[in-house]
Design a protein around this nucleic acid. Structure first.
Lengths: 146, 146
DNA sequence: ACTTCCCGTTGCAGAGTACAACTCGGTCCG
DNA sequence: CGGACCGAGTTGTACTCTGCAACGGGAAGT
């Protein structure tokens, strides 16, 4: 196994560890907002509103899953759906004020926790780390894997 | 938000994207081995055998969850449990030959897929990327987050 | 108009999890 | 020894997440 392949193995494995721990801690840190919900809210904030289908594609989730998650978030008053006037099939999802509020709080808590773990990462490494991840996820597609 | 904080945000977000896609593709790429099962098998291979409790701790899973997963893997003939002669409460888990076989196949398939995505990463970046992840996961603890 | 396509919802079923209660072997006093 | 306590694993229960398939309704092309 080449050096590069060993690195690839490590990347896969460590990503998985990360994911499992994230899931586990999410429940403890903010019971009112599951990891999925948090992620979706974050995406809405970042994108400034999008369609359910976009969310599904981005996170490789089934549209039915997203539909239910969205319904729950709407019931909780964290997002609202607006019918796209151009195309009545489409619902544009957007954060409500309450949603922004909650999202902001949870983000602060999470960020603090992550910062704590990353305290001895020089800023330069953080930036490079983030760039690697973005580059990985942006890669050609993903129909193959991940 | 400082440059470092922005990087932290990105790291969180992209890690999540990665995790979701990994889960989704696992089902398609190797239906016979869920992402969890694959991960556990991988851990057993890497560690050369360990206890169920170790798995639970490492992946922040409940011991009951691990117990069921392990039971399934054993039923499938991929691992075996040996009673620790020193302490009869303990079961040491190890890959069977069949387990090694399957794990090897799936690993090759996954690795190929990941390689494809990482094709334009210079080896040096791969190694550094892997190192970042290990460093992150090895950080003090994780009781806080992730 | 008719067909086809796309967005979203709902019924259904299965996997993954957690939590709590329990069993069993070990360890540590008294 | 004997009883209290601890740690590993199992099992019962309930819930969430998720995907697939079937469906309703609007939109677009012929």
């Amino acid at each position: 196994m080449s050096r590069a392949e060993a690195a690839v193995e490590t990347i896969q494995r460590e990503m998985t560890v990360f994911a499992r721990r994230a899931r586990a801690s999410a429940g403890r840190m903010h019971p009112e907002l599951s990891l999925v919900s948090y992620t979706l809210l974050g995406h809405l904030e970042e994108s400034g509103g999008c369609r359910a289908t976009d969310l599904a594609a981005h996170y490789a989730l089934d549209k039915s899953t997203v539909s239910r998650q969205v319904a729950a978030l709407e019931r909780a008053g964290l997002i609202e759906r607006r019918l796209d006037p151009e195309d009545h099939r489409v619902q544009v999802l957007q954060l409500t004020e309450a949603g922004q509020e909650i999202l902001g709080q949870v983000t602060l808590r999470r960020r603090a926790a992550v910062r704590e773990r990353l305290v001895d990462f020089p800023e330069e490494d953080l930036v490079r780390f983030a760039a690697y991840l973005e580059r990985y996820n942006a890669a050609p597609d993903g129909a193959t894997d991940r």
